[in-house]
């Protein structure tokens, strides 16, 4: 056998219709993980404004830290991004619990159901939180 044919990655994302629950859970967990670690770095960057706060200005809430956060929160886009962040975090937490159960060898035969449950629960929590996130003063 001098030759053989390599088809490369046959099971690439083009076959997404054939993916099963466990595969979707993995894809979502990885995606939300990337978002969260990206947010962690951004979050610390934004909060770094706390280093340059002028104590006098802080007394009247006119310091750079308070202003930066208030400025961001006044943007509707940021509010929607926060809802997205909540969705991402809640799913990562719930599916994370599912994965810890899998690691402990608990309920592996219903791993697909627990994935659907974490999806549904994420949806419910996010929908219920929308008023809290979009409400409040949008200056």
């Amino acid at each position: 056998m001098s030759q053989s044919y390599n088809r490369g990655t046959v099971e690439d994302f083009g076959r997404w219709r054939e993916f099963t629950a466990g595969m979707w859970a993995w894809i979502f967990h990885k995606f939300t993980g990337w978002v969260l670690v990206g947010y962690l770095f951004t979050h610390i960057a934004v909060l770094s404004t706390a280093i340059n706060v002028d104590p006098a200005a802080a007394q009247s809430s006119a310091d750079i830290y308070t202003n930066t956060i208030a400025g961001l929160e006044s943007l509707l886009v940021v509010r929607f991004l926060e809802v997205g962040l909540l969705a991402v975090a809640v799913f990562h937490i719930l599916n994370g619990i599912r994965l810890l159960m899998v690691d402990l060898g608990v309920g592996l035969e219903s791993q697909d159901k627990s994935f659907y449950a974490s999806l549904v629960l994420t949806g419910a929590i996010v929908v219920a939180s929308v008023p809290t996130f979009l409400g409040g003063k949008l200056v």
Binding site: A50, Q59, D63, T66, I69, E73, L86, K137
Partner: peptide, 12 residues
């Protein structure tokens, strides 16, 4: 986000 709204955060 729920106890303290993100928009109401101040340095103090």
């Amino acid at each position: 986000h729920f106890v303290n709204h993100a928009a109401d955060i101040t340095f103090l």
